[in-house]
């Protein structure tokens, strides 16, 4: 088992109203088989034993499916490995002696609550404004009653892979939430159940996205490059089509 020694510069901030700063920590003997969050656990154990305040960070499943974890490591959301959440990033991606600057997902729409924890409830409000299908049916309909081409189902599944982590916003030079919102719009508008409300949905979700203070997309493509679920910006193009159709015909 190989181990590495690291220098960490971690963003420490008491609460939303306080001024934050980068705090330097040295951490030795980190197993390269550890995940990034386990490395932070080791640091927190050490801090706790020293009677200091541990670093607050979000996490839940630790298997890359819940969307809770995420920080910016040396300027890259979720760190250097492609299509990987922070919890699934392993320390073998780093070298002995590396200096890691760890900052929260920053955006005007994501206020920092403490240290690396940001409030991503703006995403929830985007979903609440239209990310659903409002049909009240009885039992489950027969699986083959509504035929859906396999290709369409695949596209919808690809879009549905979004875990709402917010890395796209964190990486966007403008703090835009287009990748997240477009994944949700796409997932629903591609399927028959979601088609009925597609215009109202596109209008409402984009309006909420704008109100929440996300920036304006300049097609820099950074979102797609850091997304742990490989969500493609072809979803953004689809949302642009959905929105333009909706606003010109029914807005």
């Amino acid at each position: 088992m190989s181990t590495i020694d690291l220098t960490l510069q971690i963003w420490r901030q008491k609460d939303s109203d306080s001024q934050g700063h980068l705090q330097i920590y040295t951490l030795g003997g980190i197993s390269t088989d550890m995940s990034f969050l386990e490395m932070l656990d080791v640091l927190n154990e050490k801090l706790t034993k020293e009677g200091k305040d541990p670093v607050a960070f979000d996490h839940d499943c630790r298997e890359g499916i819940c969307g809770m974890c995420g920080s910016v490591i040396n300027g890259v959301a979720h760190g250097p490995e492609k299509e990987t959440t922070l919890c699934q990033l392993h320390m073998r991606n780093f070298k002995n002696g590396d200096v890691l600057v760890i900052e929260p997902f920053r955006s005007r729409a994501f206020p920092i609550r403490k240290d690396l924890i940001v409030d991503r409830s703006a995403f929830d409000r985007i979903i609440q404004s239209g990310g659903y299908v409002s049909v009240n049916t009885g039992g489950t309909p027969d699986g083959n009653a509504v035929p859906i081409p396999a290709k369409t189902a695949e596209l919808a599944m690809d879009a549905a892979a979004c875990i709402g982590c917010g890395a796209c916003v964190a990486a966007c030079p403008n703090g835009a939430a287009m990748l997240f919102t477009s994944a949700k719009v796409s997932q629903l508008c591609l399927l028959p159940q979601g088609k009925t409300e597609r215009k109202a949905r596109a209008l409402a979700m984009v309006a909420t996205m704008d109100e929440e203070g996300f920036g304006y997309c300049s097609n820099a493509r950074e979102c797609e490059a850091v997304c742990p679920k490989g969500i493609s910006i072809s979803n953004i193009a689809r949302m642009n089509r959905e929105y333009l159709k909706a606003v010109l015909l029914e807005g």
């Binding site: 510069q9 980068l22 910016v72 040396n74 300027g75 890259v76 600057v101 900052e103 920053r106 955006s107 005007r108 729409a109 990486a171 966007c172 030079p173 403008n174 703090g175 203070g213 996300f214 920036g215 304006y216 300049s218 820099a220 493509r221 950074e222 490059a225 850091v226």
Partner: peptide, 18 residues
Amino acid sequence: LQNRQTAASRYSVSTRVV
């Protein structure tokens, strides 16, 4: 100008992945 308000120099290390 609007984008500068949302995102002016947010990170102490910023890396473009593209």
